[in-house]
């Protein structure tokens, strides 16, 4: 559905051939949604994300990176880590982006989480 809509957008642009400056603002939400979905699809290896790479390979990588000519060590400031170190200690999860719950599409995406939604076969609402 999303693809078709974006195509129609393109067609409209060509037809009207309007030099209107604010064209790029159109369909921003769809673009953002697509980007978000792409990111979701590129499932990262969570174990690697949480625990870092496997212990053995990590060791060898460290040796390669940190020593230059066996004498000097390359100091790499870990920016993201430093930034995190002294930030607020809070367990609340703020993903930053929120879904747009005014869209019927979005509302439909969680319909089956409720008892009022569709039930799997073998299970009964009763």
């Amino acid at each position: 559905v999303v693809k078709q809509q974006s195509e129609t957008y393109v067609e409209e642009e060509e037809e009207q051939d309007d030099p209107g400056a604010l064209r790029w603002k159109e369909g921003l939400q769809q673009k953002a949604a697509q980007a978000f979905l792409r990111q979701q699809e590129a499932a990262p290896n969570l174990r690697k994300l949480v625990y870092g790479s496997v212990v053995k390979s990590e060791d060898s990588e460290d040796e390669d990176k940190e020593e230059l000519g066996g004498l000097f060590r390359v100091s790499r400031p870990q920016k993201s880590k430093k930034f995190q170190e002294n930030s607020l200690d809070c367990s609340r999860f703020n993903p930053g982006t929120s879904h747009n719950w005014d869209l019927e599409e979005m509302l439909n995406s969680i319909r089956d989480c409720f008892v009022t939604g569709k039930w799997e076969e073998g299970q009964d609402a009763a």
């Binding site: 969570l46 625990y51 439909n108 995406s109 089956d112 989480c113 939604g117």
Partner: peptide, 21 residues
């Protein structure tokens, strides 16, 4: 202790929100 972490993707026709872990 290290946890086993598996991503569970919802199937196509399911309307139950995003990925679970």
């Amino acid at each position: 202790i290290m946890f086993k972490i598996e991503v569970q993707k919802p199937s196509e026709d399911e309307r139950k929100g995003g990925d679970k872990v």
